[in-house]
Every structure is written in C-alpha cells, then in structure tokens.
Amino acid sequence: MEEINDTSVAEFILTGLTEKPELQLPLFFIFLAVYLVTVVGNLGMIVLILISSLLHTPMYYLLSSLSFIDCCQSTVIIPKMLLNFVTEMNIISYPQCIAQFYFFCAFAVSECHMLAAMAYDRYVAISNPLLYNVTMSYQVCSLMVAVVYGIGLISATAHTVFLLRVLLCKSDIINHYFCDLFPLLELSCSSTYINEVLALSFSAFNIIVPAMTILSSYIFIIVSVLHIQSTGGRVKAFRTCSSHIMAVAIFFGSTAFMYLQPSSVSSMDQGKVSSVFYTIVVPMLNPLIYSLRNKDVRVSLKKLLQKISFLKTKN
C-alpha cells in the first residue's frame, strides 16, 4: 500500500485577486490609496478621541477600539498584498502564512463582537439615558473590550492549533490574496473534517450571536424611539444609530457569505470578492462613516483644526 507523502509545503504562492498582468499596477495604486486612507482615518479617529474631552464617553471608547482593530486587520493583509502586486512570484513562507491567518482571525472575530458591543451601547443610551453613565461605566466598557479581544484570541488560537495539525502537501498555490482558512484547507492531504466543523461552529457563534445581539438591540431601540414625542428627537436618535447599522450591514453580510457555508459549496473566486469587503473596504469605511455622519466628531475635528491653525499663526 502506497504511503502518503508526509512532507508539508515550506512556502506558498498566493494567486492574488487577479492573474492578469495589465491589472497588477492599477490595483497596486488603488489598494495603496485604500490602505493609506484606512490607516490615516483609523489612527486619526483614535488620536481625536484621545485628545478631545467631548469624545470621552463610552460610545467613543468603543469606537476607538474598533478603529484599532480595523487598522491592525488592514496592516495584517494589505502590505503583503501590495508587495504581491509588484513581484513576479507572490511567495509567502509557511510560518508567515500561519501568523497572518492567526492575526487576521483574531481581529476579524474581535470586530464582530465589538460591533455587537457598540449596538448594546446605543441601546442603553437611547432606551435608558438616565442610567447610561452607570450601566456603561468605565469598568463595564473595559470589561466588554477585554471580553471582545479574549473571544478573538481564543477563536484564532483554536483555529490555528487545528490548522497546524493538517498536512498541507497537495499544492503550493493558495487561491487567495492572503492566508485564509478555506483556501489553506484545499491544500490538505489529510482529513479536514474537524477543521470544517470547527470553522462552521465558530463562525456561527462569532457571526450569528453578535448579529442577533445587534438585531435585538435595534428592535428595542426602534420601540424606544417610537415612544419619543418630538419628531426632532426621533430623527436625532435614528441618526445616532444609522452609521452603525450601515457598517454592520456591510461587514456581516460579506462575512456570512464567506464563512456560513461549507467549503464545498462556496466558490473561492466569489469568496475573494466577499473577503475584499470585510478585510479591506469596511476598515476604510468605518472611520469615514462614523466621522462624516457624527456631529460630535465633526465638532471635535473642527476645534482641533482651529487650535492647530491658531498655534501655527502664533508661531
């Protein structure tokens, strides 16, 4: 009986978004611009929240954590992706690939639960405004953020440990632009049943539970808003939540499409397009959505720019 080759691949070739040479350079500049906007937008949001006393509230504490997650997630994926656009062989070593998957998984899962925490914050703010500062105290917010990161790290560790047990020797070509779970499992020479069950189980928990939390929060929010007598109060309440709903819809829609179906059903080419939304587009859009549609952020940014302008004039 012939033995299975038990030699794992030492390095992989990432196929990227497209194999057409004429698209490589335009895509490089597009994603470079996206990455710069993402980093500047998210780091700018963090700095603005830190230095502006108007933004020292639980809502913006959670938002600064979301910005940190988005910035880190983009940095895990896009720099290597940009390098692949301008090199002939898009090579990534096995340790680098596993590390990229681990950190991507940790930040992606953390984002799911951070969006749920932000929805709960909006529910408390609108439904119980008098108890808001007590319910969403600094200690409670810190605990929520710690739990969010804890779930992300536990999920990433579980996936990575079981992935390390899989023998990847079928091919050295990963049909993706980064090291994601299902493209890696396609290269397996050993059974991936446990990995797929684990993936569907964790995906169900990390997508459905936060999504249901968000949905429940907004059902209660809508009920509370409808009890507000003034039209202006209703509009203000809905405006406070609209940016969060927009970010949630894009993120969970694309994530669910990729992970809440068996790998045998999903298409990797469709998965690439879906992945672009939650790994690249959403981290770029989040600071834009929350800043352009948020009065407090706009006011704080205006004050900061005026202060900088005054200091320059004084000097």
Results as ranks from 00 to 15, higher is better:
Gly232Ser: 09
Gly233Ile: 09
Lys236His: 08
Val265Ala: 07
Ile214Asp: 00
Tyr218Asn: 02
Thr255Ala: 11
Val265Leu: 13
Thr231Asp: 12
Tyr259Cys: 08
Ser217Ile: 04
Ser254Arg: 02
Gln270Phe: 15
Val225Trp: 01
Val223Met: 13
Leu260Glu: 02
Ser242Val: 11
Thr231Gln: 13
Phe220Tyr: 13
Phe220His: 11
Ile228Gly: 01
Leu260Ser: 05
Phe251Pro: 00
Ile228Val: 12
Ser230Lys: 02
Ser216Arg: 12
Ala249Tyr: 01
Lys236Asp: 13
His244Thr: 05
Ser216Tyr: 10
Ala247Tyr: 01
Tyr259Trp: 14
Gly253Arg: 01
His227Ile: 11
Gln229His: 12
Ser224Trp: 09
Leu215Gln: 07
Val223Lys: 14
Ile219His: 07
His244Ser: 03
Met258Asn: 14
His227Gln: 13
Ala256Lys: 03
Leu215Tyr: 13
Ser267Phe: 04
Gly271Lys: 03
Ser264Ala: 12
Ser217Asn: 02
Asp269Arg: 07
Gly271Ala: 07
Gln261Cys: 08
Cys241Val: 09
Ile222Thr: 11
Ala247Gln: 04
Gly232Ile: 08
Gly232Met: 07
Phe252Val: 05
Gln229Phe: 13
Ile250Tyr: 07
Ala256Pro: 01
Ile222Gly: 02
Ser263Gly: 07
Gly253Leu: 05
Leu215Lys: 06
Phe220Asp: 09
Leu226Asn: 14
Lys236Arg: 14
Arg239Asp: 10
Val248Tyr: 01
Ser230Ala: 07
Thr213Val: 11
Ser263Leu: 12
Ala256Ser: 09
Ile219Gly: 04
Thr255Asp: 05
Ser266Trp: 11
Val223Asp: 14
Phe220Asn: 10
Pro262Lys: 06
Val225Ser: 02
Ser263Pro: 04
Met258Lys: 09
Thr240Ile: 15
Thr240Cys: 11
Gln261Leu: 10
Ile245Thr: 13
Tyr259Val: 13
Asp269His: 11
Gly271Asp: 08
Ser230Asp: 09
Ile228Ala: 05
Met246Phe: 15
Pro262Ile: 06
Ile245Met: 09
Ile245Pro: 01
Ser263Glu: 10
Lys236Gln: 15
Met258Ile: 15
Arg234Val: 10
Phe238Ala: 08
Leu260Ala: 03
Lys236Ala: 15
Ser224Leu: 06
Thr213Leu: 09
Gln229Tyr: 10
Lys236Glu: 15
Phe238Arg: 04
Phe257Arg: 13
Gly233Arg: 00
Ala237Phe: 04
Ser254Pro: 00
Gly271Phe: 07
